[in-house]
């Protein structure tokens, strides 16, 4: 493999891995803190993708803005969506068995997919890369690398750093960490745990939606895109260790590498490689690489 091609693939895998991390971090947080296994998390990614597609003309007509305004409007909608969903559905699931959580969130997936089908249809859509980021950087003598992909990575890194900051440095982060280990204790400290959960859930939704929106210009939007991401995110969480943000980051980057280079080196087996990786890690460490708590 030529060094430039290697570099390009490396950047691609980094971008893919970081994107996976964003979605998986929400999944692992929601499980780690609220104990809810949320199958519908992939749907939020899908909703993000379709927002990037469907909101753009509306936003352009209303505010006259471009991609970034769409991003902002989408984020606001995502937070509202997360807040409402938590109140309407997820708050009933905290004390329920995993089985019921699986079922209800599976039901939600079906509903989201059908609503998407009703509102936007079942076609595959491309989303235009914003003009500002449409260029390419030269890599070596003949190759170039699209700026937009670098932008995705940058957004992901910024969000990851932001999450790290919130968790380790802020009062909210302290409450979240305490809430995941001891619910009663947090309540006895006078913190409104219901509100805390609602905030965390809304944040998780917002991050997944954002991931879907920024990814849309690269991956295009299509039915079932959420499910695909969800299952890979499960693999990320299993490899990284449940509830561990650090584990999710390492595992997501690892999967980015394996998947991207797998497609180049072993195209026939690419779909399976990620699962083989998971099987091997399970043999070695059944609790994942970084088990939280």
């Amino acid at each position: 493999m030529d060094f430039t091609i290697f570099l390009i693939q490396l950047l691609n895998s980094l971008q893919y891995g970081l994107l996976l991390f964003l979605v998986a971090s929400g999944l692992t947080l929601i499980f780690g803190i609220m104990g809810v296994i949320n199958l519908a998390h992939g749907s939020f990614y899908m909703i993000g993708g379709y927002m990037a597609f469907a909101l753009a003309p509306i936003v352009a007509a209303t505010f006259g803005g471009g991609f970034f305004s769409t991003l902002c409007v989408g984020l606001v909608l995502a937070v509202v969506l997360g807040y409402v969903l938590e109140w309407a559905f997820y708050s009933y699931l905290y004390e329920r068995e995993h089985l019921q959580q699986v079922l209800m969130t599976y039901g939600l997936i079906l509903v989201f997919e059908e609503l998407r089908s009703l509102l936007v249809g079942d076609d595959v859509h491309g989303v235009k890369v914003p003009d500002l980021l449409a260029g390419s950087l030269p890599l070596g003598e003949v190759m170039t690398y699209p700026v937009y992909r670098l932008f995705i990575s940058a957004v992901c890194v910024a969000l990851a750093l932001g999450m790290y900051f919130v968790f380790s440095r802020t009062r909210l982060g302290m409450m979240i960490r305490a809430g995941s280990t001891n619910r009663e204790m947090v309540q006895s400290l006078g913190i409104d745990i219901k509100f805390l959960y609602r905030v965390v859930f809304a944040a998780g939704v917002a991050i997944a939606v954002l991931a879907g929106m920024v990814a849309a210009p690269v991956s295009s939007v299509y039915p079932g895109m959420g499910n695909q991401v969800l299952i890979i995110c499960f693999v990320v969480v299993v490899i990284g260790g449940i509830g561990s943000i650090r584990g999710a980051l390492v595992a997501a980057l690892l999967i980015g590498l394996v998947d991207t280079f797998g497609k180049v080196l072993l195209p026939d087996a690419a779909g399976v490689l990620v699962y083989v990786l998971m099987a091997l890690i399970l043999l070695w460490k059944p609790d994942g690489l970084f088990k939280a708590g």
Partner: peptide
């Protein structure tokens, strides 16, 4: 080798592996 939620996710992932094959 895993339990609870892990088990749910792992069985799903292995089914997906067969699906991709």
């Amino acid at each position: 080798r895993t339990k609870g939620v892990y088990f749910i996710m792992v069985t799903l992932a292995f089914a997906q592996m067969a699906y991709f094959v």
